[in-house]
Nucleic acid binder design. Sequence first.
DNA 1: CGAGGGATTGATACGTCTCAAAGCATGTGG
DNA 2: CCACATGCTTTGAGACGTATCAATCCCTCG
Lengths: 210, 210
Amino acid sequence: MFEASATQDPAIAIDAIERLGAREAFAKDAEIYGQAEPVEHVYRVIRGAVRTTRLLSDGRRQVGEFYFPGDVFGLETGPDHRYSAEALSDCEVLSVKRSALRGDVAEEALRGMIWDATVRELDRTQEHVLMLGRKTACERVASFLLDIVGRTNGLGNLPMSRQDMADYLGLTIETVSRMLSQLQADSVVEFDALRHFRIRNQQAITRLAA
Amino acid sequence: MFEASATQDPAIAIDAIERLGAREAFAKDAEIYGQAEPVEHVYRVIRGAVRTTRLLSDGRRQVGEFYFPGDVFGLETGPDHRYSAEALSDCEVLSVKRSALRGDVAEEALRGMIWDATVRELDRTQEHVLMLGRKTACERVASFLLDIVGRTNGLGNLPMSRQDMADYLGLTIETVSRMLSQLQADSVVEFDALRHFRIRNQQAITRLAA
DNA sequence: CGAGGGATTGATACGTCTCAAAGCATGTGG
DNA sequence: CCACATGCTTTGAGACGTATCAATCCCTCG
């Protein structure tokens, strides 16, 4: 259960979800599932990007995570979703009914994939806790940019708005904007468009990410 | 794998870990495992309490979680620990070698228990993210007290220091202390000892926890 | 090309941190 | 059993970082 999935060919799991999964398309900002809805499916991003969000009663919003092609989401654990999931851009996802996973020994590979995804999710969530608990605004933004680059093959594309970034980083939109401006002024990164940047000083951004 | 564990008798899993696990005792502040050590065991608290912590390079500390009797910890996911675990008080834990879990169909119940514990861990970590990202100091402290009461059968015992609380809540020790004083002044809680309190106004603390 | 909404920048307010001192538990030795 | 020493906790004053409010900018899309 633990080490097995690390050593097996990931293509087997991909094959399993592709055989069982239904392809679905969502328009930008469409809800994929809602907070407090029952957990019925597991999803995998094919194209585009997805965010999960959670609302406090007075409207404060926290973004749980961003998901890119290949990422699995919807792994939440209770009977009901605690986060809702929305399309960041027009996107396509594969979805598999959780009930399809029960008792079928042939889908062991798919289970392994879900275990791996859960483990990765926990890992990333723990990193998120460290960031929100102990990093400064500048460090959070730097960490975020570095993380995005690492997850998207070095392309500095930001499919999310500044508000989404702020709600992920536990900051306001103005603070995010100021930090981005500052990083650019310090020649750490360079934006050639609102949502596209490149790293100009790898060493500096790595140090700033703390 | 998903629903199965929810419907099965938890006593079976408890039995499995008790049969396989080795009982170990740790003195207050002793390290159970260290950051960057290989992940070899899974643990369950028998008596006392445990904290997991993570250090930034410059010494800033984040407490990941507190664990009480019955809780499973050490579930971290990569080959190496990203958090270290320490005894909050003199305590006893059961530990099971992860390698003992591999390929043994008879230990399915134990696997189910680990799945459940991982899921609970993810759940709590997501709650932690929301708290650190979007709650005020007062709300964090109120949430924390409420959580502790919920996890320890209504006993308002705090086995951790103010510093541990601060590092869990992403605050300083002084701010935690001020918020506790304020909650007490407002008759929301009452401390009869440094580490023992009771809730005086359930409605108020629930509202403050946001 | 013009309208609209997101993003940036600026000035100020506020919450939390920092530094410092005093208070209070806990444990030790007389 | 008391007195003291030690370390943790509380309280206070001031500094700092981020939020808030407001105006302008500038992309994007129609």
